[in-house]
Design a protein around this nucleic acid. Structure first.
Lengths: 201, 201
DNA sequence: GTTACCACTTAACCTGGGTTAATTACTGCG
DNA sequence: CGCAGTAATTAACCCAGGTTAAGTGGTAAC
């Protein structure tokens, strides 16, 4: 994976969001990106710190995790390549990030300075529409997740997770799934036991 | 409140989002809006139905409420004028709305057809940036709410509500606040009793 | 091999909040 | 005025999920 390939993936990713964004090359956009590598266990951004960078994951898998004042970790989401990653809040509001981004599988990514990236890209025809489409999708996702937390039991949220991310299930430790669906690993273990007792699959 | 005044409020509202959107009049935008009135108890959109309209509330107060399959109502948010209202998901995805918008205090609003509105407005300089800013704010709000549900107790969520919306507290029935913070009215009543016993304010 | 370190499970106990239902306002209405 | 109908409180009971702690693999380092 070289920089050129990553940039091509990025352009493809953005084009398929809808919104009519197209581009031949990064050079023509006038944005500069740095190709970076992160190993499992490293962090792209850290909770409490400034996080003005936008990441485009060409390979790898990460999770967004926030730790409460009482020390409990909560996984807000997973993101697997190809995907953008970063804290919208920290980028646009220039406030400290409310979560860390932890690498679960080795990441190769492009790193942009958000302010520079946005000021360049907003003049590209179709970019803002694509970005809006992306934001809409993010928002809708959060809305659905909000509903899950309020209206579903831990068991139902686990089944929903399996349904939505079957490919992630074998790749991430159960404790992370537990922290994603908002229960303790102990509780998730109970749920799994109960499920394998009833349905025998 | 006449249509002209409402349109002026709308333009002001959009201008102050940031993003550089400005306009002299609706006429110059080429978008058509209908001025509508809704009484307390009526609905702007209804769960399960198509909801291709965007509302701009010039006066009034509404809540977004969804009812689960088991019949439990959950208040996703409140919106008071001046504010936009509508289901992003239903507008952009042309799917049925996942919630209803219920009028709590009489509403005077402008009603737009989203598809028409967006196709006209996206060509206005600065509009897309303002719309992005709006979406970012919505997304960040949901993210914070997600955190509250996972990391705070019912009591803490209630205190947070009072802190965030002190002006709404005396205006809406307790049961709606309960359904907003994700507990039953009975549980909220317990919380309030406990609070007035400890701190005497 | 053995020691150490994880991830995961299981059991025992506890608690926050749900459920049901009775009681007490508060309101508008005939 | 009395009588609905609705909102809020309170009490009694219940349960999903948290907490603590002990047990069971699995694997990497020595």
């Amino acid at each position: 994976m070289n920089q050129y390939q990553a940039e091509q993936m990025f352009i493809d990713y953005f084009s398929q969001l809808g919104g009519g964004f197209t581009a031949d090359s990064f050079a023509s956009l006038g944005v500069s990106a740095q190709l970076c590598y992160y190993d499992k266990g490293e962090y792209l951004i850290e909770q409490g710190c400034a996080a003005p960078k936008l990441f485009f994951l060409a390979t790898g898998l990460v999770r967004y995790v926030s730790v409460s004042p009482t020390g409990k970790a909560f996984t807000q989401s997973f993101a697997q390549a190809p995907s953008l990653a970063g804290s919208t809040r920290a980028m646009v509001g220039q406030t400290p990030a409310l979560f860390s981004i932890e690498v679960l599988e080795p990441v190769i990514c492009l790193v942009f300075d958000w302010a520079e990236f946005f000021s360049q890209m907003k003049n590209q025809p179709g970019f803002l529409e694509s970005y809006c489409a992306l934001l809409e999708a993010l928002f809708i996702g959060k809305e659905e997740r909000e509903n899950s937390f309020v209206q579903l039991s831990a068991e139902q949220r686990y089944l929903q997770f399996i349904d939505q991310y079957p490919h992630l299930l074998p790749r991430i430790p159960l404790q992370f799934i537990a922290s994603y669906i908002g229960v303790t690993p102990v509780a998730l273990s109970r749920v799994r036991k109960k499920l394998q007792l009833s349905g025998s699959d």
